[in-house]
Design a protein around this nucleic acid. Structure first.
Lengths: 181, 181
DNA sequence: ACCCTCCTGCGGCAAGATGTCGCACCGCGA
DNA sequence: TCGCGGTGCGACATCTTGCCGCAGGAGGGT
């Protein structure tokens, strides 16, 4: 697995400005150039700055990011795209890969995860020994909670509603295992 | 989403004979031709019977099904392949899609799910409204349990160990929500 | 300022779920 | 036949959860 070339230029597409800028900064700190866009139109326009890699959030206010992925790749076939997907929504991930994305990322993704996704996306590891380890129930629960919580922008009440659990319970769970970040 | 043509011929690749034959029968009952294989070698050999669609289990005793997917598609580019993946192991699913598989299925998959996967795999639904519904915790827990349990061949003790929960607890959960099948 | 709504954190209690024993039984291979 | 591991189930202590309630804060509308 080779690393991402240092002269790469990233295009970040996400509607959440805070998250986007934070990630952008993290990538810049690592010496990469970064351009950002908060929606499909801006993203297409940003192609003029010739990014080499793109990170696209699949779930944006103005519809799915899927058409954007298609358009980006159509316009710039050499552009390497990874998608940011909310929950482990495999279905749309699969769609995105079919459209030419090289990899996917689940939502709370930091700069290192992004770089790893690109590095890994460039070559399909055929030899990979899938010594499938069944994740423990506690672990999947934990990840799902984190994902939904992140998806609700940290809103505990909202997250508890979506998760179908009592707010007090979520609070207690979060107190037990402190959420990352 | 168009249906799978009636003159399709399926190739089922799975090391579990019972499951394989059961699925084969289900597909034959729906009027399709079916050939089966219990491993990569048999699968490649079965290409001589000119299947149009293939279902490949990614997790087989002799290593990953990934190389097989690649070889199948390389030899028969027009062959439509969907993969059978254990848990929501997105990573290998993504690899398989990159290799040219048209869709994926999670493990306890019946004939109808297989047909649906093929039907859906033929066209990427760009318009799909991703009205992401966060699945409830209970639901994801339920699905994960089912997957692992299936993966352990129905062995409750083994599944409880992998899930990190007490056997008695798993028993009780299974008694409450009866597992499908 | 006022009201209203929503979110947050937390205490407490009853009800429910879980961990941990133990026991009887069964199938299988040495 | 023995040992091993799986299964189903009962009982009980203990942890977890649901469901109250309350106080405080942030934001919007009047």
């Amino acid at each position: 697995m080779q690393a991402v070339p240092h002269e790469s230029k990233f295009l970040l597409v996400d509607d959440d400005e805070r998250l986007r800028e934070r990630t952008a900064r993290a990538l810049r700190d690592r010496g990469f150039e970064v351009v950002t866009a908060d929606g499909p139109d801006e993203a297409m326009a940003a192609l003029r700055q010739d990014p080499t890699h793109a990170v696209v959030d699949l779930r944006m206010p103005k519809g799915s990011g899927l058409p954007l992925v298609r358009d980006l790749i159509r316009r710039r076939p050499e552009l390497r795209v990874v998608i940011l997907t909310g929950y482990g929504s495999i279905a749309t991930t699969v769609d995105a890969i079919r459209l030419g994305a090289v990899n996917y990322l689940t939502k709370p993704a930091d700069a290192d995860m992004i770089l790893a996704a690109f590095a890994r996306g460039d070559n399909v590891p055929l030899a990979e020994a899938p010594d499938y380890q069944a994740p423990s129930l506690a672990r999947t629960e934990w990840e799902h909670i984190n994902r939904v919580l992140d998806d609700c922008g940290g809103n505990i009440s909202e997250a508890s509603r979506r998760l179908g659990m009592h707010r007090r319970t979520l609070q207690r769970k979060l107190a037990t295992f402190p959420p990352r970040r």
